[in-house]
Computed example of a mutant assay.
Amino acid sequence: MNIQPTYSSLDYPGKMSLVLFTPGCDLRCKYCHNPQLLKNQQLTRWDIEEIEAEVESNMDFIDAIVLSGGEPLLHVEDIKNFIKQAKDSDLLVKLDTNGLHPDETREIIKDLDYVAMDIKAPLDKYYKITDVYPKDTEELIRKTINIINDNNVFLECRTTYVPQLLEPSDIQELTANLDCDRYTLQQFRNRVTLDANLSNYEEPNPEFLREILEKLETNIPEIRLKSRQFGNQLIKG
C-alpha cells in the first residue's frame, strides 16, 4: 500500500479505529497532505488482501474502520468488501469523502455510521483550491449531502483554512446553508503539500480561526476547530 493502515483514536471520535487509505482522487487540492496517493490511482489485489488481513488481525483492538484516502469511492466495489468485513464483526464504519460521488454513496449508505465530507470552499469557488474538478461539483455535493441526511447518517463537514486561498467570508458563505450535524474548521499545516509553494505559507493562528467560527451565522448545531496547538476544540454545541 502507498500508506499503511493506521491506528487512530481521533479519526472516529470516541472510538479506536483503523484508518484504511485508498489511492487516487478526482481533485488536486493544492494543500493535499497525502500527495503520494495521487501518483497511483490503482488499488491492486495485493493491496486489498493486505487491508483485509490488517483488519482481521486487529478486530480485538478496534471499534471502527475509517475509509479514507485519496477518495475511497473511486474503489466502491472494493470498499464494499471492507465494509462487509467490518459489519460481520460488529465494527462501526466511517467514510471520508469529497462528496463528488452521490451514486456510489447511495450504494453503501445503509452500512455507514459516520461520514466526514471535505467542503473545500464555497461550492461555486472550487477553483480557489484545485484546478481539477467536475463542472457539476455543486450539484454532486448537494446530492451527496441529501443522500446522507435522508438516511440519518451522522455527517461532519470540514474545511481546511489555507491563508491566501480562503478568506473568512468564504467560511461564512459555505456554512450559511450547509445541512450537517457538525462543522469543523481545520488549521492548514505546511509540512507536506501537493503544491510546494504552499510550504512557504504560514499556518493560520488558531485564535484567528476561532474568531471566524464565533462570528458564523449558521444553523449547524455543532462547530469545532482543529489545530496543532489545541487539538479538536468545541466552539458551539
Score class of each variant (00 low, 15 high):
residue 156 E to Y: 12
residue 91 L to K: 13
residue 24 G to M: 04
residue 31 Y to G: 00
residue 110 K to G: 02
residue 146 N to H: 13
residue 172 Q to M: 09
residue 13 P to R: 12
residue 79 I to K: 09
residue 3 I to D: 00
residue 20 L to S: 09
residue 136 D to A: 05
residue 103 D to W: 07
residue 188 F to G: 10
residue 40 N to R: 02
residue 136 D to G: 02
residue 48 I to H: 02
residue 129 I to C: 07
residue 136 D to K: 11
residue 190 N to D: 08
residue 100 L to F: 10
residue 65 I to Q: 01
residue 39 K to W: 00
residue 79 I to D: 07
residue 74 L to G: 03
residue 166 L to V: 08
residue 41 Q to E: 01
residue 195 D to G: 05
residue 193 T to I: 06
residue 94 K to A: 13
residue 104 E to Q: 15
residue 66 V to T: 10
residue 48 I to G: 01
residue 181 D to F: 06
residue 225 L to Q: 07
residue 81 N to G: 05
residue 152 N to D: 15
residue 165 L to S: 05
residue 116 A to E: 05
residue 76 V to Q: 11
residue 223 I to W: 11
residue 48 I to R: 06
residue 186 Q to F: 08
residue 228 R to W: 13
residue 97 T to W: 04
residue 29 C to Y: 11
residue 50 E to M: 02
residue 99 G to C: 08
residue 136 D to H: 10
residue 83 I to P: 04
residue 215 K to L: 14
residue 122 P to I: 05
residue 220 I to M: 12
residue 136 D to W: 04
residue 178 L to R: 03
residue 152 N to Y: 12
residue 123 L to P: 06
residue 39 K to Q: 03
residue 6 T to P: 00
residue 83 I to W: 04
residue 205 N to F: 14
residue 89 S to Y: 10
residue 49 E to Q: 13
residue 162 V to S: 07
residue 137 T to C: 09
residue 82 F to W: 08
residue 40 N to M: 01
residue 101 H to W: 13
residue 231 G to D: 05
residue 85 Q to G: 01
residue 134 P to T: 02
residue 116 A to G: 09
residue 221 P to S: 11
residue 9 S to I: 15
residue 110 K to L: 12
residue 36 Q to K: 01
residue 44 T to Y: 02
residue 69 G to Q: 01
residue 169 S to K: 14
residue 19 V to Q: 10
residue 160 T to Q: 09
residue 194 L to M: 11
residue 175 T to N: 07
residue 133 Y to E: 02
residue 185 L to Q: 12
residue 188 F to E: 06
residue 1 M to V: 10
residue 72 P to M: 03
residue 26 D to W: 04
residue 154 F to I: 12
residue 87 K to W: 01
residue 110 K to R: 13
residue 165 L to D: 03
residue 124 D to Y: 05
residue 233 Q to V: 11
residue 209 L to I: 13
residue 204 P to Y: 14
residue 159 T to V: 03
residue 74 L to Y: 11
residue 169 S to Y: 09
residue 226 K to Y: 13
residue 2 N to E: 08
residue 172 Q to L: 03
residue 182 R to E: 15
residue 12 Y to A: 02
residue 21 F to D: 05
residue 145 I to G: 03
residue 206 P to K: 11
residue 31 Y to V: 01
residue 101 H to D: 00
residue 44 T to G: 02
residue 135 K to S: 13
residue 103 D to Q: 14
residue 207 E to W: 15
residue 208 F to V: 14
residue 197 N to E: 15
residue 213 L to P: 10
residue 112 L to G: 04
residue 154 F to Q: 03
residue 223 I to T: 05
residue 108 I to L: 11
residue 86 A to F: 06
residue 86 A to H: 05
residue 91 L to C: 04
residue 27 L to P: 08
residue 139 E to M: 12
residue 20 L to C: 14
residue 105 T to E: 07
residue 231 G to L: 10
residue 38 L to W: 00
residue 135 K to I: 12
residue 105 T to A: 12
residue 134 P to V: 07
